[in-house]
């Protein structure tokens, strides 16, 4: 196949060989190539530079790039592991790998902890949980009195903050989610099992000879 395809993929800064990415993740080579189809469509939606910026990420999630969302922002920052302000293809595949149904449970628990540890101090603090609750309420136009928000926080910290120091550390988090497995639901995307049927056009753009592997 050839030069034409290779030249095309060089326009994607941070593009990595699907065989290499498959060897590092739960994805097959075909699945990595199918993810590239998704990556191409998101990364070209505003600026066709082969990278996903925050506006493009929010556009893919909300169908509008202007809508700022605390949670989408936080996920973007966790995908952008090199903190470049953009997500390249390697970042995209490795981050989505955590959401694969076959990814290790510990990786999901760890990613989710980082997601909620907004300022990255290694603890989920009460003020962070309050900030997230307020963001959720404004997003859903749900109104709750401050006393209700505080009572939700009281109950949550009674359950999750075993040493009652006002913040949830990693061990407390692991223990808390083991008793509340529903909290890990957002960390698994069943879609990732069917990625090759969702994006079948990867077959026409494949650079790998035996795409079944």
């Amino acid at each position: 196949m050839g030069c034409f395809q290779s030249k095309g993929r060089r326009q994607f800064p941070g593009y990595e060989d699907p065989v290499f990415l498959a060897s590092q993740t739960a994805f097959t080579v075909s699945e990595v190539e199918a993810l590239f189809e998704l990556f191409k469509s998101i990364s070209s939606s505003v600026i066709d530079d082969g990278l996903i910026n925050k506006e493009e990420f929010q556009l893919a999630l909300f169908k509008t790039g202007k809508k700022e969302n605390l949670f989408a922002n936080r996920i973007f920052n966790l995908f952008d592991v090199k903190q470049k302000g953009v997500i390249d293809f390697g970042d995209f595949v490795r981050a989505l790998n955590v959401f694969h149904p076959n990814a290790p449970h510990e990786d999901k628990v760890d990613f989710c902890f980082k997601l909620y540890d907004l300022d990255g101090t290694g603890f989920i603090e009460r003020k962070e949980v309050k900030q997230m609750l307020i963001a959720l309420l404004s997003e859903s136009e749900m109104r709750l009195a401050d006393e209700v928000v505080e009572s939700i926080l009281d109950k949550t910290f009674q359950e999750a903050d075993a040493n009652q120091d006002g913040k949830i550390d990693k061990t407390e988090w692991e223990n808390f989610v083991s008793h509340n497995p529903s909290l890990m639901k957002i960390m698994t995307l069943p879609y990732l099992r069917d990625i090759t049927t969702t994006f079948p056009s990867f077959v026409f753009h494949s650079e790998v000879e035996d795409i079944a592997t």
Binding site: L61, M132, L133, L189, Y191
Partner: peptide
């Protein structure tokens, strides 16, 4: 006495956390 929900159960319903939407055409 009203049932008080867990904060993280509420937070995890945010649309911004639903990456599944990326795969819905």
């Amino acid at each position: 006495r009203p049932v008080v929900m867990n904060a993280f159960d509420l937070i995890s319903t945010s649309q911004g956390l639903d990456l599944g939407i990326l795969f819905e055409k």
